[in-house]
Design a protein around this nucleic acid. Structure first.
Lengths: 340, 340
DNA sequence: GACTGGCACTCGAATGTTCTGAGTGCCAGG
DNA sequence: CCTGGCACTCAGAACATTCGAGTGCCAGTC
């Protein structure tokens, strides 16, 4: 049904439309890309492509624009992910290398991704579930108030305050600190929850209430959904490039950005750092974002994903470059995190 | 020059324009507010107000809109800050009370502020400069890699990694930890920098290189500008309400939001939690934000500001309500922080 | 002297009309 | 199967017209 040239035509249409954001006609198409055939022939091909649902006409006397299906075909079959230039790669590494701590890595990543892709960038914080305990610190703030600090293998630091009705013995704290660390160090947070349960048993009955309340707080920290779903967002200013179609391209995205839960769903469950997930227009789970595409991937070690990152932009984005950028950034972040 | 009634007219104009976002004419003004005089009289007053520069006409056959000077007069003389309803106050406290840690307090505050004012909200993290050391933890990650964790009186947790060429003696670490804490505990970060300088002296010459590098890292953390200037932003979706005038109201704000340095300047140096700073249109330091007003205040204890928070919105905002909301939120955040 | 009703005037926005040209589909001929 | 030619369509630009909200000013009234 669709021979080689028709696909060439589709590719040309997508590339042209992405570049100009204007419906492309048969003549301009032949002029700009050397297709080696006449406009009339292209028109026939276009009719076929429209028949198949890959392109559409905004109105009778206008050129064609790709449909979601058209972009899909383009992404799957007609394009290759663009690799970044050496200079760009260097810029990425040097920019990320300057990070102070995990928070800073995430913030820098968002910034970077937004800047390179010129889209809105989203980066999920490394999952607690998939990381392990590096250290647990128990600090006495006041005699009746303790601060728990949990440091994970990915560099995340979680803190919680625990109040206790009576003054707390300093010796007990030291004891607790060392026990917690011997029991939990190196354990996955998911496993740690079970190990934790046994900790109160190790202490004298009189101390158990305090120990239990600390354990409970830790358990909460380990499994807290709010914590789990932390994400950083950036590059909203890039939306200004679509100011012409505010209602369609800017408003829904701005609104979605406020709803982190939505963003997480949007990023989807890319669990493999090797794969790029592309959701085009209606393919994504939110009606309001039907004019929007998402390019996402996981980052982390090769074998295991820590979290997801990606960008959100209008369906008429430059997929090859964007995909290349997302992939590259994910790789470098993974690397930075592995090093630290 | 400006008698009582002229001021009434100005007040009415501001209120009407804020409500409708449309130039207000003499007739509608008389209809909506009971000024007790005829449109013709109001017209004369309007002419006077225009003469004085408080209002202006977008074009000859249109009504009047307030100028920046008009808003200024309104804010200073013609309005009183609106206090929140009991229900709203309750909502604020209960929402903020649920916070897990400092990060969470800040995030919740931004969200809250954005929601109540229906504007873009900005909250600066409590300044490191003005807080004191609560605890310093030194954790061994690997024999050659240490993690420093600084916990401040405001609940901020800063972490830094220190690498060392040789394996580090565990005993030394314990020693260092306790010395650091005895020397620094309770000190202002600003004072702490001087106290820190003396720490290496306390150790055997062979240990000094390591101690020195740790001290340097801590010093950096204490004074880091990047850290100092952390802010959280939210409510960008509220900008969608101004979609009609995208170029003037939405674009510049979105762009400013990306530049945290600009935002900090914008919040200004409100150092007194008792005062509300209002910058109207051209009064603020950025040309591009000339159609934008900022309402900001400091939060922290009564005697001392920890940091600043505020909102950014179009000049034609509801100042009394907005100011009330900003003030209220600042107070409650101060309270929450004082409690923890 | 301050306020008001009346009136002529202004001009942006809304509405209507026409024109133009990019782009199409289709067909007959190479 | 491709191409040049041709009639057709229709959104958007350009222009003209109307409409009315709002103004400034003035003469008259309290």
């Amino acid at each position: 049904m669709l021979d080689e040239r028709k696909l060439d035509v589709l590719r040309a249409i997508v590339e042209d439309y992405v570049a100009t954001h204007e419906p492309v006609g048969s003549k301009t198409l032949v002029d700009r890309h050397n297709l080696g055939v006449s406009p009339a022939t292209v028109r026939n091909d276009m009719a076929a492509l429209e028949e198949e649902g890959y392109i559409t006409q905004p109105h009778t006397s206008a050129g064609r624009i790709p449909t979601d299906a058209g972009y899909r075909l383009f992404v799957d079959k007609l394009s290759t992910v663009k690799t970044l230039s050496v200079a760009e790669k260097k810029a990425i590494t040097s920019f990320l290398a300057g990070a102070i701590d995990l928070d800073d890595v995430v913030r820098r990543t968002v910034r970077l991704l937004a800047q390179i892709t010129r889209q809105v960038a989203i980066v999920q914080y490394p999952s607690l579930n998939r990381s392990s305990v590096r250290h647990i610190e128990v600090v006495t703030m006041t005699p009746r108030r303790l601060l728990l600090v949990l440091i994970t293998s990915t560099g995340r630091v979680e803190q919680r305050i625990v109040e206790h009705p009576n003054d707390v013995d300093e010796q007990l704290i030291a004891d607790l600190r060392s026990r917690l660390n011997t029991v939990l160090a190196g354990q996955r947070l998911t496993e740690a929850t079970t190990s934790l349960a046994a900790v109160p048993e190790l202490f004298a009955p009189s101390d158990r209430p305090l120990v239990a309340s600390i354990v409970t707080t830790l358990l909460e920290a380990f499994t807290d959904e709010v914590v789990e779903q932390r994400i950083a967002v950036g590059g909203a200013a890039n939306l200004t490039r679509y100011g012409d179609d505010f209602e369609r391209n800017v408003k829904p995205v701005l609104e979605a950005l406020e709803e982190h839960v939505i963003l997480l769903k949007l990023l989807g469950e890319a669990t493999n750092p090797q794969t790029l997930t592309v959701r085009i227009g209606h393919e994504n789970p939110f009606e309001e974002l039907a004019t929007t595409s998402v390019v996402a991937t996981a980052y982390g070690s090769k074998s295991e994903a820590l979290a997801t990152l990606g960008i959100v932009g209008p369906t008429h984005m430059d997929y090859p470059s964007t995909m290349g950028a997302v992939r590259a950034v994910a790789r470098y972040v993974s690397q930075i995190l592995a090093d630290s």
